[in-house]
Design a protein around this nucleic acid. Structure first.
Lengths: 251, 251
DNA sequence: CACGCTGTTCCGTATAACGGAACAGCAAGA
DNA sequence: TCTTGCTGTTCCGTTATACGGAACAGCGTG
């Protein structure tokens, strides 16, 4: 296994991201490495400007802005997905007047890469880069419904291991829901991830039919009851389709 | 210098962020390292899931979502700045009906860490994690105006080296403007960074008086002429003050 | 005052990372 | 077609480097 120190450094950054601000000993304990190695990794990362220490008596480490600068470029990697999606998302917001999200998948999670706020005063708020379970969100279900069988099975294996815990849906029920999403072309989430947030999602397919992302409309339950979700699903599906067309034209 | 391979890997990621998608040879050339080292670094980063290759004939590398997942946590490092700022930013948007930005400084740049879209149809659009010169933005001038003398001088040295190039302001004119900003408490930018974008900014000070961030109101010149900038500056300054109070209360 | 915890430094050794060289595959040019 | 110049990839020997144990200093608690 090459570049052990790099693997350590990356795990250190992930540990900091999850538990910042955090000290040397806690990092070493969490990763099962010696304090010496953790300390060396931290000072190296700090020297490169990716993390910084609160200069208290007991140094606690946090990610620095450089990490954001580099990480934020990751959203541009999907063949200009965001640039193509944003104008369509603008249209969708004009039609629905609600918050529009653009998400991509990372294993068993979806990550928010763009957001357009709803127009009305009461509105959902999710930070960019935010992460949620692929099993509890409409975007996750939308993407999973179009995944190739092998990729889908890999995700479902994760669910089988965790079903029941943490409000995870049962394996069989989830399978049935994915089938239904595949048939209808859109997914609905009624407060399954965050209480008081309803959402409807549609998968964005690239030229080869792979679901690279999902668009969603989110709002509070009062403005987005089940019936309304079904009614606006047409617009969401159409927006996803238009973004897909743009992707094929671009790349 | 310890952990050379880590330093290489981080530089590789920065190079990818700046020029993705990019191949092995180009990375090696840009960093002045051997193709072997670049290749090893890339495969290690890919193994850890931070970058991924387009599986074309000629492998081109891009940042993966994992980089965003970690990087996005960097915005939480400033003692809960965003959580405190967002509600105040909501108020400011309600008052002005324009786009509200929250930015922090990284050396001679400001980085956008949160954005609330304006209500009106024509509106500025800046991606989160986006970077702009501290000398050409209202946010940059607002933050610089409250920097301790040493930090300010370090930045001004950068300006002295680059003054004239790239639409950079002259050293003396910029000094005068910073003095004016310090006196008035807010900064204005009339299309100095992006054409057709006017903005007004105020610095957010922590408990020790250090300018940790800036809030801005941005819009198109028609809705934000110079006179209007001065009129709404009161609201921007007050928003920045309220966020500062929240910071002091929190930590 | 000892104990447990911080973070930090030193050091010997095992190993891992370096770059040169060689190879395969593709594209443009002669 | 055959060359030239670029890709990316693999192998290998040597050197330098990253590892963890042990020891140290500083602080708060029992």
């Amino acid at each position: 296994m090459p570049n052990q120190s790099v693997l350590v450094a990356l795990r250190v950054m992930e540990e900091i991201a999850a538990h910042q601000p955090i000290g040397v000993s806690a990092v070493a304990r969490a990763l099962g490495i010696s304090k010496t190695t953790a300390h060396r990794s931290l000072t190296t990362l700090a020297g490169a400007g990716w993390i910084s220490a609160s200069n208290d008596r007991q140094a606690l480490w946090s990610l620095s802005v450089r990490a954001l600068l580099v990480g934020s470029r990751a959203v541009e990697s999907h063949a200009g997905l965001r640039g193509i999606a944003v104008p369509v998302m603008e249209d969708l917001r004009r039609t629905t007047e609600e918050t529009i999200h653009l998400l991509v998948r990372d294993r068993a999670h979806v990550v928010l890469i763009e957001r357009l706020d709803g127009i009305k005063p009461v509105r959902v708020f999710n930070p960019l880069g935010g992460r949620a379970s692929v099993f509890k969100t409409s975007a996750g279900k939308a993407i999973l419904s179009r995944l190739p069988p092998d990729d889908l099975q890999a995700c479902l294996d994760v669910l089988r291991a965790r079903a029941g815990q943490d409000d995870m849906p049962s394996y069989d029920a989830f399978m049935r829901e994915i089938d239904e999403v595949r048939r209808s072309g859109f997914a609905i989430n009624l407060a399954g991830n965050q209480p008081d947030v309803h959402a409807v999602a549609a998968p964005i397919l690239d030229g080869s039919g792979y679901p690279v992302a999902a668009v969603t409309v989110s709002s509070v339950p009062e403005r987005l009851p089940k019936a309304t979700c079904h009614r606006i699903a047409t617009f969401v599906v159409d927006a996803a389709r238009r973004i897909g067309v743009g992707l094929r034209a671009a790349g």
